[in-house]
């Protein structure tokens, strides 16, 4: 730490959630790291796999239930269509601020040199195959492999 003055060299970002707001948070952090010249790798586990599953990644939603910051009463948030409506509104706002959709964002991350890994345990649990995943995902690996990937000075790890 003292030798490199705490400089961040590599960000290891674990995405375990499939709600749009969490997926974007992870993507922005990974892309932002690359923009600063910091290496970035992502490990997709549990519901985070939805964001790299070819058939599912275009259908992610924001969470309207159990999310007090949405300021939608929990009962209303659970009504049919509310989540879809909130998602549409959010996507419109995101486009306004030049935020790409999930598919385009994955392409940006991939082109920017973000390395992507899928969690073996979660893949087995959801019965997903490597072919189901976005092409930029390098491999399906174990948590141990991911820790090995993280070796080196100035690596920081983030769980979302």
């Amino acid at each position: 730490m003292t030798e490199n003055k705490g400089e961040i060299k590599k960000m290891m970002i674990i995405l375990s959630k499939g709600t749009l707001e969490n997926v974007y948070a992870a993507f922005v952090l990974a892309n932002g790291a690359r923009m600063e010249g910091i290496e970035a790798e992502m490990f997709f586990t549990f519901f985070g796999l939805e964001s790299i599953h070819k058939k599912k990644l275009t259908h992610l939603h924001v969470a309207t239930v159990g999310n007090p910051a949405m300021h939608i009463p929990t009962l209303l948030g659970g009504l049919p269509g509310v989540e879809a409506l909130a998602t549409t509104m959010m996507k419109k706002e995101m486009e306004k601020i030049d935020m790409p959709d999930v598919a385009e964002f994955l392409d940006i991350l991939s082109a920017s040199g973000v390395r992507m890994w899928a969690c073996k345990l979660a893949m087995d649990m959801f019965h997903y195959k490597k072919e189901d995943l976005y092409e930029g995902v390098e491999d399906v690996i174990t948590v141990g492999d991911f820790y090995k990937q993280s070796a080196g000075e100035g690596t920081h790890m983030l769980f979302i």
Partner: peptide, 8 residues
């Protein structure tokens, strides 16, 4: 305004 997305 410039962004990585615009560059792409």
């Amino acid at each position: 305004p410039l962004s990585i997305r615009k560059i792409g």
